[in-house]
């Protein structure tokens, strides 16, 4: 599918295949990739995380405020991840421990995180970040921005772990049939908690790069990131009934979304259409997932 869309786009607009355009497509994915990877884990566990986009906004604001108050660049990243991880821990606690429906929990934390970020900044950009911090996202090695290496590393390691590492691979059991997983000796609660923390940390990583590359903290960073992440994960084989999905598949989903969005830019269509298209892709992906499930159940 990625190839088909890319092919069509290349025919319609030969500039798509320019090296500089391809690099820009690749760099454009660094924000969505970690989030989609985390979302895949949460979906495999039978949950959903609607709060990731808002966590990006909150993390960005917290990081910028810390740096502007004279904080150290070295500590800025751990502090960003701690803020994101804290929000994820709240999600995980409510879902795993208090058995609240994930949809409701993360809808709530989404509103809390976005609201907090907006209150903290009164809606303004927080610019004037130290150059050393901006270097994290903009610095390059062999002409490729640092974040690309980090994100690729995260995706590859995450993919291998989910497929092959028992503690994480157990997510498939826990997502397919939680009580049966419990009776098979799998600590479902701990795994679900870890899933939400991982998802939030991935959003935190995305926020670090966004804040650094765009050289500011902004409460509205990461808007609709959850939607793109869910679409990418479902395109990559994840299902709302849990128990399926792969990081590699989700990465291909992100690539598809990035190519389509790049097509909009190249074909000079309004960027405002992008939200419509992402939503459309999500709805189609969900419909495909639902019919796949119906077919399975009727067997």
């Amino acid at each position: 599918m990625v190839l088909v869309v890319s092919g069509l786009l290349a025919l319609a607009e030969p500039r798509f295949l320019n090296a500089s355009n391809l690099v820009s497509v690749g760099t454009g994915m660094i924000y969505d990739l970690p989030v989609a990877a985390g979302m895949t884990l949460v979906l495999a566990l039978g949950g959903i995380d609607l709060s990731v986009g808002a966590i990006i906004g909150l993390t960005s604001v917290v990081t910028a405020m810390y740096l502007r108050s004279g904080g150290s660049v070295v500590l800025a990243v751990p502090i960003a991840l701690a803020a994101a991880g804290g929000a994820g821990a709240l999600n995980g606690l409510l879902v795993a421990r208090f058995r609240v429906a994930p949809f409701l929990v993360t809808l709530g934390t989404m509103s809390i995180a976005r609201g907090t970020a907006t209150v903290l900044t009164s809606g303004y950009y927080l610019s004037g970040l130290p150059p050393a911090y901006i270097e994290i996202g903009r610095g390059q090695l062999l002409g490729v921005p640092y974040p690309v290496f980090v994100v690729l590393g995260v995706v590859v390691v995450f993919d291998v772990l989910l497929r092959r590492w028992k503690p994480l691979h157990d997510a498939y059991y826990a997502g397919t049939n939680p009580p049966a997983a419990l009776l098979s000796g799998i600590d479902v609660g701990r795994l679900v908690f870890a899933g939400y923390v991982a998802s939030a940390l991935a959003a935190g990583l995305s926020a670090v790069f966004m804040t650094s590359r765009l050289a500011m903290g902004y409460a509205r960073f990461g808007e609709l990131a959850e939607l793109r992440a869910i679409a990418a994960a479902v395109l990559g084989g994840a299902s709302f009934s849990g128990g399926t999905g792969s990081i590699l598949g989700a990465a291909l989903g992100v690539l598809l979304l990035a190519v389509i969005s790049n097509g909009f830019v190249l074909l000079k269509l309004s960027v405002y259409w992008q939200g419509v298209v992402s939503g459309l892709i999500l709805v189609v992906a969900i419909a495909v997932d639902a019919s796949r499930r119906r077919r399975n159940e009727s067997r």
Partner: peptide, 12 residues
Amino acid sequence: ALGLFLAMTVRD
């Protein structure tokens, strides 16, 4: 309900 992972393989 409590035993099998119906959507997973026999091997799993």
